[in-house]
Design a binder for these strands. Sequence first.
RNA 1: UGUCCAAUGGUGUAGUGGUAGCACAGCAGAUUUUGGUUCUGUUAGCCUAGGUUCGAGUCCUGGUUGGACAACCA
Length: 573
Amino acid sequence: MEISDDKKIGDKELESKNFIHNIIEEDIRTQKYGGRVHTRFPPEPNGYLHIGHAKSICLNFGTATKYNGKCNLRFDDTNPAKEDTEYVDSIKEDVHWLGFDWEGREFYASDYFETLYEYAIKLIKKGKAYVCDLSQEEMGAYRGTVTQPGKDSPYRNRSVEENLHLFEQMRAGVFHDGSKVLRAKIDMAHSNMLMRDPILYRILHTDHHRTGDKWCIYPMYDFAHGQSDSIEGITHSLCTLEFEVHRPLYDWFVKELEIYAPQQIEFARLNLTYTVMSKRKLLTLVKEGIVRGWDDPRMPTICGLRRRGYTPESVRNFAERVGVARRDQVIDVALLEFCVREDLNKKAKRVMGVFNPLKVTVTNYPEGQVEWLEAINNPEDETAGTRQVPFSRELYIERDDFMENPPKKFFRLAPGAEVRLRYAYFLKCEEVVKDTEGNVIELKCSIDPASKGGNSPDGRKVKGTIHWVSANHALKADARLYDRLFLKEDPEDTGEDCDFKVNLNPESLVVKECYVEPFLKDAQKMDKIQFERIGYFCVDPDSTASKLVFNRTVTLKDSWAKIAGKEEGADNK
RNA sequence: UGUCCAAUGGUGUAGUGGUAGCACAGCAGAUUUUGGUUCUGUUAGCCUAGGUUCGAGUCCUGGUUGGACAACCA
């Protein structure tokens, strides 16, 4: 796979520093690893990647790039019961989409099963590991608690020969699942629970997605991860804070095994307001049909963000801006939204689309006449060029752009008021047509023919410019208006006996039919556009030749909504 | 009633003993054929009590608050 130019990593992302970079620069200075920098991104292939993983991906790959080092993609596949190639494929796609390349260094912990087995033998021979027959419940009891020391297993003092023999038999499939484990012999009274003779291997007669039925014993995370780092020559093993307590064990293994020692450095995982991030909760959303799947545009998964219309650059920029530190972080989702607006503002073509149509008849414009008017595709990018937009006697404008009794600061259309139709004419409202119930159903307006293109030769100013489409030329399309999935900043902030689902936003998806200009008829799936004055959208893969489907990525900032909101608040006082 | 980790504006993040800075959010204004963008200004911060020092956000000690740790998960 090639990485296209627009996915290349920008200089900006290489400039900033964090505490990990400080450590690395010191290590380079002291030649701790001969000046090498080698990181890795180590997902377990048991689920889809989310924005939190994106932070880790950007940190690991970005750090390698910054210091002319390397970053491996390594699948931590030591639990065959949960893992699958389906996830391997999606993870590779997502990492690549983000703009990173592992240059063929695609590794698997399962690649090292044989070496890991030999490492275990070495530990047994040193008297540092033993086969234990305690049941799961018994082992729990022997382990003690965080405030009380554990006690030694009765199997702790088996001879090296017996342990060797038993471990060989474990591998040979002599024992059934759960009947025996291999444990490290460390200290059952250690203040760190993980050092109380942790399990190295368990028996699992389950086929592995890569090694098939070759193994019926599998290494635990702690015995596999650090040694995999060591085998790959990783210098800085970056992981999240919850692995901090594992570090003494990580160091213990490389020391006892007398192998190359990478260093583990922990950083805070990413949390977002109005968002749940745990795999379990995301799975709940999918399984219960609350969202349409892992790539539902409301999901914080990378594939969800992609379908929502986020760009790799915007996600990378976000990862850069959130920073890397050791205190828990809850990032305002507004920062994510800012990042995507920032990128899309530079890239998205502007087009007009009407979401809540109100019919306008231009009474002084001849029936049947059509003019094609020139419109700028992107004021932020001259190379985006221009397009032609059809104008005719019958138009649709946005219902919100007309008020019969407007407040002072309302610059849009009102009886007797004049606005500019973008790229077209000044338009004046002459008459309001209502149905029998008093609802406004149509506006009869006139244009100033001299103002064609949007400026009047007499220098007359209008304060408002509104968007429109020609009724007979407009395409009907579906718009999926996405919003935050949860109503509360902290979805976990629930009453007693409630779970996060009580905080779901019932309007996180509103489907609307809209009218868009004919320019869009050739739009391709995943194309990103801005409907002027509305928001950024992308073309959903569900689109067909006969009907386009647009996903709202994010709204435009709306300072009118703020003003209007304040007026309303004032009225209520 | 344990061990470890953390604490800087609303949210994040810099500051490595010497004038607390940046981003987002907020507020005010300018520009504008998107009430978008852009630009300008502005509100707001070192958890606490001691100690070391000429000088402490930074170093030390105690406290407070928050987090992690008792899967044959990773």
